[in-house]
Write a protein that binds this DNA or RNA. Structure first.
Lengths: 189, 189
DNA sequence: TTGACAAGACCGTCCAGACGGTACAGTAAA
DNA sequence: TTTACTGTACCGTCTGGACGGTCTTGTCAA
């Protein structure tokens, strides 16, 4: 069956992400991942019969983690509107120093089709937010700004200072919140 | 006669961008670029002695074009505030279907350091906008949203419909414009 | 006008190395 | 015995790059 001793699988996936981050996305070779994971190349190929499967594993793990984080955030932050929850979650995500998903570049280089699951996931997420947000304009602005934050994090771009990031998030929450307030009670100058 | 003028340089650069876009960033090999440009590999290596130089050429051309576009846009759109000009320019950029700068992925895979010129350029641009915009919050939101738009364009992600894109741009211009109005009414120079 | 010649622009071929992947024998625990 | 690997050897392919040769153009003296 599946996951009996999935220790290696996770280790390999984490190692792949580490290699991509530290040695650059172009250096993500099977040998590098294997040695980084403390696993022989044979063992790697046993868990992931092909490099494409490795990439697929990375994508699936990424999506799974994202979905789970969204779910728990929705539960914990229940009192807020979904857009605000998403903003806060994404901002926290991007707060972490390491560009967690730079393996994406490797995946794209390998085969651009690896992006399609991520793209459809994003689209579904956006559609869901669209259904849960009253003001389309606020949603668009906030969603795109968060996308920009993600982009900068992915490219390891440090254009914004910490203060500016916080101010941005506050502004976005204000925008997201104002739409909520409009919906609840149209009382704001 | 064959075009022996530095014509070849531009042709090669364009060919490289085409190959990266059409065959995927991972297939950006010297042979592919050479054949696409209608140039032998030797000829390519003559113009760009190494693959790194090719990438550098792509980056420099990208930055040069961007700067020039910004300049002409500033001249033509003189009556508007700089942030609005930037928003409009970027939106137009992202509107074009064909030329994603997907060669960036190849460059990153080759060596992440190729991003540093682009990163410093972005930072300078942001600093300049910061100096020219009265309301930091508006700037942050608009700049990041545009960054998000760029990101989606780069990843060839079609989450937004055309109407939504237009609505987004209108909203951003509104946000940018309101800061301008504040500046105009509150402080006169 | 012509011929010689140097420099620039480009071609075609070859090569060492890295990579993904295969095959297979061995091993230690459950 | 099966599962989950390890370790090594190996193959075919692709890639960046080096190299020497070739064609074109500009220059200048005679």
């Amino acid at each position: 069956m599946r996951a009996q001793r999935p220790n290696s699988r996770e280790k390999i996936l984490a190692a792949a992400a580490d290699v991509a981050r530290e040695s650059g996305p172009g250096s993500l070779s099977l040998d590098a991942v294997a040695s980084r994971a403390g696993v022989s190349k044979g063992g790697l190929l046993y868990n992931f019969p092909t490099k494409a499967k490795l990439m697929q594993g990375l994508v699936e793990g990424y999506l799974r983690d994202f979905e789970q984080a969204l779910e728990t955030a929705s539960s914990n932050d229940n009192d807020k509107n979904p857009l605000a929850v998403y903003i806060r979650l994404s901002a926290d995500d991007c707060e972490e120093k390491r560009p967690s998903a730079s393996w994406i570049f490797s995946a794209i280089a390998e085969d651009p089709d690896f992006m399609t699951p991520i793209k459809t996931f994003r689209r579904q997420l956006f559609e869901r937010l669209k259904g849960e947000t009253s003001d389309l304009k606020s949603l668009l602005v906030c969603y795109l700004a968060i996308e920009g934050l993600r982009s900068m994090n992915l490219f390891d771009s440090d254009v914004l200072s910490k203060d500016e990031r916080e101010l941005l998030v506050a502004s976005l929450l204000e925008i997201a919140g104002s739409s909520d307030a409009e919906q609840a009670s149209a009382t704001q100058s």
